[in-house]
Simulated scan of single mutants.
Amino acid sequence: MSFSCFIKLFAAALVLSLAGYYSAGPLGIGNSPVGSIFATGLLIGCLVGGFLVVLAPKAASNSASKAESATSNLYVGNLPFNAGQDDIKNLFAPYGEVIDIRMVKDRRSKRFKGYAFVEMNTGGANAAIKQLDGNDYAGRTLRVNEAQKKEEA
């Protein structure tokens, strides 16, 4: 949990506990022990603050996902099994900046499976698809297209 999240949680707990303390008289629960009213307010404040902490990163990730929309994720299939990250980067570099390469490996043998995912800017990705899909690379016909979104369970 980040420091700013802790501050939000603490502030919500404190505000609600003070609100509970000062509203005890008008609500007719003034004969209850002050400690229990304050503790109940702290509990409610922690719960509300927890919701604030949970909702704040989602709002931030929504704005971050809009900023990431300038990039595309490409599926690159039928690569030679001896291809490395540098080979793939050199293959896509003429079309735009390569941001990330994720080579898929077999879990047991740790060997490259022959396909990868390349993240690059959208303009470069479109150019790479047009130029590389169906072309020969090290004796193999490349398959390059926009990667399908991973479905969340």
Rank of each mutant, 00 (worst) to 15 (best):
residue 2 S to E: 14
residue 4 S to E: 07
residue 4 S to L: 14
residue 7 I to C: 06
residue 10 F to Y: 10
residue 11 A to L: 15
residue 11 A to V: 15
residue 13 A to I: 06
residue 13 A to K: 12
residue 14 L to Q: 03
residue 15 V to D: 04
residue 15 V to R: 02
residue 16 L to C: 12
residue 16 L to H: 07
residue 17 S to C: 07
residue 18 L to D: 00
residue 18 L to V: 13
residue 21 Y to C: 02
residue 22 Y to K: 02
residue 23 S to H: 00
residue 23 S to E: 00
residue 24 A to I: 06
residue 24 A to Q: 06
residue 24 A to R: 14
residue 28 G to A: 09
residue 30 G to Y: 14
residue 30 G to F: 12
residue 33 P to H: 14
residue 33 P to R: 11
residue 35 G to D: 13
residue 35 G to F: 09
residue 36 S to V: 13
residue 37 I to L: 14
residue 37 I to G: 01
residue 38 F to Q: 02
residue 38 F to M: 09
residue 39 A to S: 10
residue 39 A to Y: 06
residue 40 T to Y: 03
residue 42 L to S: 01
residue 44 I to G: 05
residue 49 G to I: 06
residue 50 G to K: 07
residue 50 G to C: 06
residue 52 L to E: 01
residue 55 L to P: 00
residue 56 A to L: 03
residue 58 K to G: 02
residue 58 K to N: 08
residue 60 A to Q: 13
residue 61 S to Y: 13
residue 61 S to G: 00
residue 65 S to V: 05
residue 69 S to A: 15
residue 70 A to D: 07
residue 71 T to V: 06
residue 73 N to M: 07
residue 76 V to Y: 12
residue 76 V to P: 00
residue 77 G to P: 04
residue 77 G to L: 09
residue 79 L to K: 03
residue 84 G to S: 11
residue 86 D to N: 13
residue 86 D to L: 10
residue 90 N to G: 09
residue 91 L to E: 00
residue 94 P to M: 05
residue 94 P to R: 02
residue 94 P to Q: 09
residue 95 Y to D: 00
residue 96 G to Q: 06
residue 97 E to K: 14
residue 98 V to R: 03
residue 100 D to R: 12
residue 100 D to E: 14
residue 100 D to N: 15
residue 104 V to C: 04
residue 107 R to Y: 05
residue 107 R to V: 13
residue 107 R to I: 08
residue 108 R to T: 12
residue 112 F to D: 08
residue 113 K to T: 13
residue 115 Y to P: 01
residue 119 E to Q: 10
residue 123 G to C: 00
residue 126 N to I: 02
residue 127 A to P: 00
residue 128 A to D: 10
residue 130 K to S: 12
residue 131 Q to S: 15
residue 132 L to A: 06
residue 133 D to N: 15
residue 134 G to M: 11
residue 137 Y to V: 06
residue 137 Y to A: 08
residue 138 A to W: 01
residue 139 G to S: 07
residue 140 R to Q: 15
residue 142 L to M: 10
residue 145 N to W: 00
residue 146 E to S: 07
residue 147 A to H: 07
residue 148 Q to R: 13
residue 148 Q to G: 02
residue 148 Q to K: 14
residue 149 K to G: 04
residue 152 E to L: 12
residue 153 A to N: 11
residue 153 A to K: 10
